[in-house]
Amino acid sequence: MENRTLGRTGRKVGVIGLGAWQLGADWGRVDEADALGTLDAALESGVSFIDTADEYGDGRSEQIIGRLLRSRARSGAALPTVATKMGRRAPQVAANYNAANFRVWIDRSRRNLGVERLDLMQLHCPPPEVYFSDEVFDALDALVECGAIAAYGISVRSCDQALAAIRRPNLATVQLVLNAFRLKPLEQVLPAAAAAGVGVVARVPLASGLLSGRYTAATVFGADDHRTYNRRGESFDVGETFSGVDFATGLEAVERLRPLVPEGVALAQFALRWIVDQEAVSVVIPGARNAGQARANAAAAALAPLDRDTLRAVQEVYDELIRPQVHHRW
């Protein structure tokens, strides 16, 4: 798998990673054996970057990854870079983003993961005021200096937030929604990140599974799946569910994309390859609920780059169907 530099961390990671939200909560239950099997399959397929958060299953995702790390350490196997996130377990007010809370949150993640130092800690879509607080970033710098974290980044909701974060001199990475249904970051965010040496972590790459091509108008998701209970943003930002695209419109767009997919390639792999073709992206983090999905996702890195006509056709589908719903919002 192609390796790229993860921004200011200086680490090299495989361009396709693994998002571990599914292994914690909000996508239906994944038992621990399946979760560990998914992680093992991803690493065996060349994945070397795993993204999680302290709120996924209230720490369950981190704890499962911690078991993987201990197992690999005992066997002498190479360890992946693990990025986690903090902040969403507390009330979302800017005052909670302070040095004392950071230390508590980081110590909890260190225990969950079983590590002395976190590879990458990201603020998890914090309140807007946080992006402009020198105190917040001074506190993060201090955590790097004392060795609690190796580097820090920020996970954002909007392009404006991403651009504000990229201006911070010690920010290592910015994580944002980027996929064939969310093209706005291509305009300013990716060029700004590349110019600043900030890594880009692309999340929600399959638009919550819409870009897998497996769903129809008759698909029913479980009651404990955010694709059921958050379609209108009832629990968190609607942009994290189907990338903010109306489900019916998303299905129509998927049908327009299908003819563009090369023979023998799955639509999900095509969608991942589209992201890999954006050179400013450090790593894309598709989720997976089982080993087969993890292997198929990783295999997208070996596909040939998409040609200009295909990229133009993706843009046309976005402009006609998707842009009116999402471009002005995020």
Rank of each mutant, 00 (worst) to 15 (best):
V82H: 08
S45T: 08
A172K: 02
G28W: 14
A266V: 06
G239N: 12
R117H: 06
E32Y: 08
N179D: 13
Q122G: 05
D51M: 15
Y97F: 14
R60H: 13
S48P: 01
Q293L: 05
G147A: 05
D26K: 10
S61P: 03
R312H: 09
W105G: 02
A218W: 01
S212N: 09
N230Q: 00
A41D: 04
N98D: 07
L39T: 02
V47N: 02
R8V: 10
L190D: 15
D119P: 07
V93G: 09
A195M: 12
G17L: 10
S208C: 12
S61F: 03
A33E: 10
I50Y: 11
D160G: 12
V130T: 00
L260E: 00
A313W: 12
L257I: 12
G244P: 09
R214E: 13
L267E: 03
V284D: 06
G76R: 07
T310L: 10
P324I: 14
N290Y: 04
D246N: 14
Q278F: 11
L68V: 09
G222I: 11
I322L: 10
E320W: 11
V136Y: 07
F242Y: 10
P127Y: 03
N96H: 07
E129W: 01
G197M: 04
R72D: 02
L140W: 11
I285P: 15
I166E: 03
L321S: 08
V136D: 07
A41Q: 01
G287R: 10
E187I: 14
A302H: 11
R70N: 09
L176V: 01
S75V: 15
A291C: 01
A94F: 02
R4K: 14
L311Y: 01
N170G: 13
R258L: 15
D237K: 11
H328F: 13
A78G: 12
P169T: 10
V283C: 13
V276A: 02
I149E: 06
L123I: 00
D54C: 15
G197I: 02
V177T: 08
P80I: 01
R157A: 10
G66M: 03
A299Y: 14
D237W: 12
A165F: 05
Q188P: 14
P126G: 00
Y97R: 09
D225M: 03
T216A: 02
E44W: 13
D26E: 09
R11N: 11
V174Y: 04
A207E: 04
A90V: 15
G147W: 08
P324L: 13
S45A: 11
Q269I: 06
G244K: 01
E62R: 06
G14R: 06
V115H: 04
S208R: 08
V245I: 14
E116Q: 08
T38P: 14
V30N: 05
E55K: 13
F247W: 07
A78R: 13
E32D: 10
G37N: 01
D51F: 15
V220E: 13
M86K: 10
F102A: 00
N96S: 02
R258C: 11
A165P: 08
P91R: 04
G239F: 14
G24S: 03
R88K: 11
D224I: 05
V254E: 06
D34Y: 06
A139M: 15
D225Y: 05
L118C: 10
R70E: 07
A42N: 09
A304M: 04
E316Y: 14
A20E: 00
S155E: 03
V189T: 05
F247C: 02
L206S: 10
